[in-house]
Amino acid sequence: MPADSLRSKLVVRTAVGLWVVLLGVVCVRTVLKPLSANIYPTYAWAGERFAAGEPLYGVFAPYVDNYRYSPTVAAGFVPFGMMPWGPGGALFRLLGAALFLGGAAAWFRRSWPNAPVAAALAVMLPLAIGSVSNGQANPHMVGLMVAAGALALGNRWAVAGACVAAAALFKGYPLALGMLLAFAAPVRFGVGLVAALAAGLALPYLLQSPEYVNGLYAEWWMNMKGDDRTGWENWRGYQDFHLVLKNLGWTVPRSQYLFVQAGTGALCAVVLAWQRWRGTDRPTLTTNAVALGLCWMTVFGPAVESSTLILIAPVLARELLDRTGQPRWAWRSAVAGAVLFLAAVVLFAFPYAVHRPVIGLGIQPLAAALVAAAGVARVLRKPAPAAVDRQESLTRLAA
């Protein structure tokens, strides 16, 4: 058997083995100890409360975190609320892993010529450990977003919009990816996104009284407005660019940092608008939109925790494994980011007194920024096709 074939089979078996071990250990632990390091009970509890018509926000219960998600998410968890937390948590994790791995595999195959999919999925595993272990919804969200990119590359824009809408109903910031993807197909994608969002927001009204649901939406909005962690200890606060600034001695109030977030997001939009005006083809615009969206959400997003860093895993995988046309500094930047990410994963295995001071130094947002720099370099180096006449450009913009 050729050496390349043997190497390929070894990579596939290693990737499968690593993911099977991770999911097996986590699911068994979840069934046996459903209350240990587990966010899932918050979702299941919300499903129970929604079904009973009880308040969701600002209510504290044993083993349950502060519920921050939309009423639609609570409505979707009604079936899980009927299950014991152990088996329900294991099922929730397996569903997230299926979305994450399936969406990422489809994305790599469509956006990356000759992609080593198995190796890429293995590279993403360290950044997924925290979310999978704690029962977070992040794998589901990332899977939906990269699946949206893959569907868009297959010209299935309406379904792609529905995927982004589903992710945004968990946490609103995936709408940033939706706005960037709209540069590739404003009407075809936008209609699917808006329709799916409207349907998702209306779903709770089909299951509960309008008065109850109206109250939930008002409380959800107030809950999101009051979520300010800029003054928290470094290790507890958001792991984003704000923490990097804080460690450099520049403490920016949340009200001012919002301009940084909005400005960097607008810059991503300007890049795509410029590329579209120059005549960049639709598949390239789509690929660039997903890369920029994932990078922005990880470095400048509104709610970046340690587990949220899984958002940049697809970008990290490509930047480590695909050096085609990339400047040497970009690959080195991705490698440096990967080393810092891996160090953080290892640190979390140690007691609080060991890992908290180091995490507080901002090694995770720094790692994300290094990987994002490599991802942005790939976006900016994409060559635009030959210039098209103005009329053709205007026609394309109106499509």
Rank of each mutant, 00 (worst) to 15 (best):
Q208W: 07
A196V: 06
V213A: 08
D281C: 01
A289G: 05
E219M: 12
T308F: 06
G172T: 04
L272T: 08
P174V: 09
C268R: 03
R278F: 11
W277Q: 03
A184D: 01
R276N: 11
F259I: 10
V213H: 12
A196H: 11
G293H: 02
N247R: 14
L292V: 10
T230S: 14
L193D: 09
P186V: 02
Y205F: 14
V252A: 10
N247S: 11
P283H: 05
V187L: 13
V290M: 02
F183Q: 04
L175E: 03
P174W: 05
T230F: 11
F189C: 05
V270A: 15
S255D: 11
D228P: 05
C295H: 10
P302E: 00
V244I: 06
T284S: 15
A195G: 07
A291M: 13
R278G: 11
L216I: 11
A291C: 13
S255N: 00
S306M: 12
E233S: 15
G200F: 07
R254W: 14
L248A: 08
V191R: 13
P204F: 01
A196Q: 02
L197R: 09
A176L: 12
D227C: 06
G263T: 09
L180S: 00
A176Q: 08
L243C: 03
T230E: 13
A303K: 09
V252E: 09
A184Y: 00
F259N: 13
L294F: 10
I310P: 03
Q239A: 10
A266P: 00
A218S: 14
G190N: 06
M224I: 15
G192Q: 04
W250Y: 15
Q261K: 13
A185R: 15
A289I: 05
G279K: 11
W296R: 03
F241L: 05
R254H: 12
L207W: 09
L309F: 11
A182V: 00
A196S: 07
N247L: 09
A199F: 11
D227T: 02
L207D: 09
H242V: 03
G231I: 00
Y212E: 04
M179K: 07
L245C: 09
V260D: 07
G293W: 00
L197F: 04
T264S: 09
G263K: 05
L193K: 05
S306A: 13
R278D: 12
P210L: 03
Y238S: 12
W221D: 14
A195S: 05
Y238F: 15
A182C: 05
E233N: 14
I312N: 05
G190R: 01
L245N: 06
N247E: 07
F241D: 04
T284D: 15
Y173S: 10
W296K: 08
G279C: 04
L309K: 02
A262G: 13
E305F: 12
L177T: 08
L193M: 03
K246G: 08
F189Y: 13
V304N: 00
T284K: 12
Y212L: 04
L285S: 04
R254P: 00
V290C: 05
T298K: 10
S307Q: 08
M222Y: 14
A195N: 02
L207N: 06
M297E: 07
A262R: 15
A291I: 15
L180G: 02
N247Y: 08
V252G: 08
A199Q: 06
P210R: 02
